[in-house]
Simulated assay, not measured.
Amino acid sequence: MEKAKIEDLPWRERQIVEVIYRLGEATAAQIQTELTEEISNSAIRAMLARLEDKGVLKHREEAQRYIYQAIEQKQVVADSALKKLVGVFFDNSPASAASALLGMADKLSTKDINQLQALIDKARKEGR
């Protein structure tokens, strides 16, 4: 089976994966605690098994517990999701996306401004 993309998962499975990314790794019981809606432990375990079948998660056994973690690194998934978001909502324009993000900020710290300026300077130097 081809590995599923996080953004294409059903919303409940995506919630579970997001919990695992937030915690780094988790048991079914930990996931159940993190979810805002009530869902049975057996339903969570069934979804975890499906997510393993889809190639999204893996587990290890420790003291008779299954501990789940994501197969793909969080940053790789974040980059993919961001590219899709910029493509869909900002016509593939990173500048438009950045403008929208900056417009959402009430105030930027000096550190944030310096970091953004360094990225702009680097892009200009590289001819991007």
Score class of each variant (00 low, 15 high):
E2P: 07
K3F: 03
K5Y: 10
K5R: 07
D8Q: 09
D8R: 03
L9W: 04
L9V: 08
P10T: 12
P10G: 10
P10S: 07
R12S: 14
V17E: 12
V17D: 11
E18I: 01
E18A: 13
I20W: 09
I20K: 15
Y21P: 08
Y21N: 11
G24N: 08
A26R: 04
A28S: 13
A29S: 15
Q30Y: 05
Q30P: 01
T33H: 00
E34N: 10
E34M: 08
L35W: 01
E37M: 06
E38C: 02
E38Q: 06
I39P: 02
S40K: 13
S40A: 14
N41W: 09
A43I: 04
A43G: 06
R45E: 00
A46Y: 11
L48W: 03
A49T: 10
A49M: 05
R50S: 11
L51V: 07
D53E: 15
D53L: 13
D53M: 08
K54L: 15
V56L: 11
K58W: 02
R60K: 13
E61F: 00
R65K: 14
I71A: 01
Q73V: 09
V76F: 02
A78N: 12
D79I: 03
A81N: 08
G87V: 07
F90Q: 08
N92H: 15
N92E: 12
P94D: 07
S96D: 13
A97G: 03
A97K: 06
A98T: 05
A100V: 00
G103I: 12
G103S: 14
A105Y: 03
K107N: 15
D112E: 12
I113H: 01
I113N: 00
N114E: 13
Q117V: 09
L119N: 08
I120H: 00
K122H: 06
K125S: 10
G127F: 02
